[in-house]
Amino acid sequence: MQLNTIKPAEGAKHAKKRVGRGIGSGLGKTCGRGHKGQKSRSGGFHKVGFEGGQMPLHRRLPKRGFVSLTNARNVEVRLSEIQGLPVDEIDLLVLKQAGLVAGNALSAKVILSGEISRKVALKGVGATKGAKAAIEAAGGSVAE
Rank of each mutant, 00 (worst) to 15 (best):
A137K: 14
A108P: 01
G140M: 05
P62I: 10
V19C: 06
G52R: 12
L85M: 09
L57W: 12
P62V: 11
Q2C: 00
N104A: 11
K7I: 03
V19I: 14
N74S: 09
R118Q: 08
L95Q: 07
A105D: 02
G84S: 15
P86G: 11
S68T: 09
V48H: 08
G126K: 10
K7R: 10
G114K: 03
S42R: 13
G140A: 02
L122C: 02
E136P: 04
H46V: 10
P62Y: 11
G124H: 08
R33Y: 06
G24P: 04
K29V: 09
R33F: 09
Q54E: 15
I111P: 02
R60F: 11
A137S: 11
K132T: 01
L69Q: 05
F45G: 12
E89P: 06
R41H: 07
A105Y: 02
S40Y: 13
H35T: 08
V19R: 14
G11Y: 03
G65K: 05
V67A: 03
S141W: 06
V77D: 10
S117F: 10
R18M: 15
S42T: 07
D88L: 15
V110Q: 01
G126V: 00
A137G: 03
E81L: 08
R78I: 04
E115V: 07
C31D: 06
K123N: 13
H46I: 05
S68W: 09
R33V: 05
Q2P: 00
N104Y: 08
A98R: 13
A143D: 12
L79A: 07
K96G: 07
A12P: 00
S117V: 11
E81S: 14
V125S: 05
G65P: 04
P8H: 03
M55R: 13
A9V: 07
G65M: 06
P62M: 09
E51V: 15
G26V: 04
A102K: 11
E115R: 10
Q38V: 13
L61A: 12
I90G: 08
L112K: 11
K109V: 08
I6G: 05
K36Q: 11
A105L: 04
E115T: 12
I135N: 03
R73L: 15
V101A: 05
K109M: 08
K132N: 00
F66R: 14
A134Y: 02
F50S: 15
L122D: 03
S40G: 15
A15Y: 06
F50R: 13
A9E: 10
A105M: 04
R18V: 15
Q83P: 08
G126H: 07
E136C: 04
R73G: 05
G11Q: 02
A133Q: 06
E144H: 09
A9C: 05
K132E: 01
I116H: 07
A15I: 07
K129D: 01
G26C: 05
L69E: 04
